[in-house]
Design a protein around this nucleic acid. Structure first.
Length: 293
DNA sequence: CCAGGTCAAGGGAGT
DNA sequence: ACTCCCTTGACCTGG
């Protein structure tokens, strides 16, 4: 995204070597810049009435290696995030997270679990700093992961480990259906919802690749029904890159743009467009299909 | 200054 | 064994 002819970037990163050389002070510097730009993104979203936005998990580079209070710039960061939070509240924006695939709550490995819990906690702490509610309105969305060919056991581990999350993450957690046949379909996730109350995020493209024996309508309506009132459900929508843009790539790859009209089956839901062209994809979708946000 | 190779992490799948 | 994909790409080096 370009604003005022200068690149706005919310996920400045560094490779491991640089982190080892420059350490936490540099991480703090990058984080501060990311958050200054986050405010510009939020302003842009308000101006363009994009009311749902996925925060970058890279806002704090290498955050799993420290606590936020270790950052030299934490006071300024807190001030900025609180200001962002005021704008979010004023304009009814909805901010969410989708932590990376290395967060595996259903893992069998205690080290991986420990890292996952810390990282999820930190996602929650950022949301707290922004002042977002501790509900799935500000969702932290995960895949189950850790199937290892035995889904029932993975579901058990997931439900058990979920209880170990601190409130800041646990109360916001949602789970999303997977894009591979041997992983978790919406019908598999229903058990997790029944055991924990976690709302289910329905992803249309993933469902095509992992139906669990359910029709799209059945799965979509079921997922939507797991959300507590009055929180509007979130659904994920993307187009297949293979089908619409490049037949050589994997079938799970996301396209740059959205090529179909989204069927909500009469439900009220917030739509997270997963398209590589990001805000340009949102604009093109709205133009092409002439719909309101 | 730039293009292109490289980059923490878990797990699954395709080659 | 290696690559790509998920994660809303970015860093960093060699030319």
């Amino acid at each position: 995204m370009f604003l005022a002819e200068k690149k706005v970037q919310v996920s400045r990163q560094m490779i491991k070597k640089t982190f080892q050389e420059k350490g936490i002070p540099y991480a703090s510097e990058l984080s501060l810049k990311n958050i200054q730009d986050l405010e510009k993104v939020i302003d842009w979203n308000i101006e363009n009435q994009v009311l749902l936005y996925r925060l970058s998990s890279n806002m704090f580079p290498w955050m799993s290696e420290y606590e936020f209070d270790d950052l030299p710039d934490i006071a300024e960061i807190r001030t900025l995030l609180a200001r962002v939070g005021e704008k979010v509240k004023q304009h009814d924006l909805r901010l969410t997270y989708h932590p990376g695939p290395f967060n595996v709550l259903a893992t069998r490995d205690s080290g991986v679990l420990e890292k996952t819990i810390k990282e999820l906690r930190q996602h929650g702490e950022v949301m707290d700093m922004i002042g977002l509610p501790r509900t799935p309105f500000a969702k932290i969305n995960l895949h189950v992961g850790g199937a290892y060919g035995d889904k029932p056991s993975a579901i058990d581990r997931f439900c058990h480990n979920y209880q170990q999350l601190p409130d800041t993450a646990r109360l916001r957690l949602t789970v999303e259906n997977d894009d591979k046949a041997n992983m978790f379909s919406t019908s598999d996730l229903l058990e997790i919802h029944q055991r924990t109350g976690i709302p289910l995020v329905f992803d249309y493209l993933h469902h095509q690749l992992c139906t669990g024996g359910w029709s799209e309508e059945e799965a979509m309506l079921t997922a939507v029904s797991t959300w507590p009132k009055p929180i509007r459900p979130v659904i994920h929508y993307s187009s297949s890159r293979k089908k619409y843009e490049d037949e050589l790539v994997s079938e799970v790859a996301h396209a740059d743009y959205i090529y179909q009209h989204i069927n909500l089956y009469g439900q009220d839901a917030d739509i997270m467009l997963e398209a590589k062209a990001k805000e340009r994809a949102v604009q093109r979708y709205l133009e092409e299909f002439a719909v309101d946000v």
